[in-house]
Design a protein around this nucleic acid. Structure first.
Lengths: 313, 313
DNA sequence: TCACAATATGAAAGATATTTTCGTTCCGGC
DNA sequence: GCCGGAACGAAAATATCTTTCATATTGTGA
């Protein structure tokens, strides 16, 4: 039940450690206390300092055998090192091992090479996309974002333009907006996009998504929408690109490193999606009264499309 | 050539998860596996994920009392998380705590509220998606991933199934694979998907993308492909879901917290895209000789669609 | 709606691991 | 050679972990 933490007074020598069991400074402690240990205890301490990870995997008996001593000695050593017993020493050992492990993390700053093992690829891609997210979040102009959200929340109709990889982002945004009852449409066909843009007028919103900021197929419909009086938004990685000419609000995504094996589409997409998510949540907040029921309604409508999972609620 | 449907209860001997006890990927594992847990086990998992350091200090009995459950349940939870027993979970917990200690600052744990200022929304979304990436990367089984890559690289033809938000991910993968010269197709129409799946045979690859792991519209074509002898891959957040029955290789995405303003589609998508990127880069590596020229060719073909930027290169 | 089957859960028995106790051994001094 | 004291380990005592089994709960099909 309630275990009492015993006071260890035996530490008389230097009084270097008040009472909290050392987390990482274990090796140092071993060296400091080694002289005051008996021969058997020194063997135990040495083994522990030598291979924390390995010892963490051993039971008292195991460690006793490994060091050619007895369980009692192991426990005595643990006590001397400042822990209530072997159990706690073991826990500290596991922590130490984990720290050492994470300490020598692979250098994931390098580019992805053709002969990288698959595990490195995963790590590098994940790291890169995390970086893109952080950069995009840091660089987002919240004023512009808020303005775009306001426009969207009150829009009669919203058109989103994007081709290629950005087309998928456009669709993602559209799907989300539709879910909360907004009239949104994604266009990846440049002709249809322009044709539809002509219909827009003041109070409508047009959003262009393009990483390069210079994709003609996307700029053209945005220009038309702009001239028709619609509120225009550009989501781009180049805040100085041509697309911003016709954009009332510019939302900038981070431009991450790219290379042969890591095309632009990959990292730009991550930033674009974050922006899109922000737009969605922003609008959902503004229109919460109507958005919340719509969200749960769409959730329930989908429920029957799912087979019963084997376990779980 | 007749393959039998896998036992869903794979953990027994088949060893669907040969994963070594996770050191740092514990938090990810908890979130991933939580949905497939029973109520009591979820309570335990939550406590563990919530306060690794605190739980590491508790005995089985202590943790059972804390969570209002029994020792047996605690042990069962530890098993589900991939450890031989509670003792080992506890060790891992101590390691995790140590890492967190030495690692980064505390997280933004709060949920997104209706009245959060826009800047907070950006920060929280970005943090969440970063978390999803880290978790997915940590939890990805590289063996399965490598197997899927090998299958893809040598495939005569690849079909990808996904509906809703996952449909966009399917398209993203398809776009990428097409770029490096693979015959890939995305299907979001369930009927067409099945119709096409019938055409598949040994040497072909079918990929199903579904967060819930129980989307009938996606499982059905995968089943057909599986029975036709194609190599099947499932990208899902529920490694125990029905979809894995018909999957030769299962790639698990992390399941992040979700709430009213943060639907499942949002965070699941991030993880799915990471997996898709990994698949793409993996295949590009394997087929570098042909992939590299194809990539630059597609880049150049697009160049003329971009207007000259106003400033800078 | 009810009975049935499957699953989830906790109490307690059973197995391990840790801690304590206590006797033996090993030295160095008288 | 005999004595006192510390070091040490064997085994008992305790705590902790694991398994088993009976009961409660839930979902399912008639």
């Amino acid at each position: 039940m309630t275990r009492e933490v015993k006071e260890i007074f035996g530490n008389g020598s230097g009084g270097s450690t008040p009472s909290p069991p050392a987390p990482a400074a274990l090796a140092a402690k071993v060296r400091t206390l080694a002289p005051s240990m008996t021969r058997s205890m020194q063997r135990v301490a040495e083994a522990v300092a030598d291979d924390p990870a390995g010892c963490a995997a051993l039971t008292v008996t195991g460690l006793a055998e490994l060091t050619g001593t007895s369980e009692a000695t192991v426990v005595r050593t643990a006590r001397l090192l400042g822990y209530p017993g072997y159990r706690d020493l073991r826990l500290a050992l596991a922590g130490l091992a984990a720290q050492q492990q994470s300490g020598r993390a692979p250098a994931i700053t390098t580019d992805i090479a053709v002969d990288d093992p698959i595990a490195d690829v995963v790590a590098k891609l994940a790291y890169d996309e995390q970086q893109t997210l952080a950069d995009t979040a840091a660089g987002l102009d919240t004023v512009q974002l808020a303005a775009a959200v306001t426009a969207l929340a009150g829009a009669r109709r919203t058109d989103v333009y994007g081709v290629g990889a950005s087309g998928l982002v456009a669709q993602d945004l559209t799907q989300k907006l539709l879910r909360i009852g907004l009239m949104a449409h994604a266009h990846s066909d440049p002709h249809l996009a322009v044709t539809n843009a002509v219909q827009l007028r003041s109070g409508d919103v047009a959003i262009a998504i393009t990483h390069s900021g210079s994709t003609g197929d996307v700029i053209e419909p945005l220009r038309v929408a702009f001239e028709r009086g619609a509120t225009t938004v550009a989501v781009t990685g180049r805040p100085d690109g041509p697309v911003t000419q016709y954009a009332d609000h510019v939302l900038t995504t981070s431009t991450a490193r790219e290379s042969e094996l890591r095309p632009a589409a990959m990292s730009s997409r991550t930033g674009q999606l974050l922006v899109v998510d922000c737009l969605f949540v922003g609008v959902a907040q503004r229109t919460y009264e109507s958005a919340a029921p719509a969200l749960s309604a769409s959730y329930e409508a989908l429920a029957h499309r799912h087979r019963a999972a084997r376990k779980g609620p």
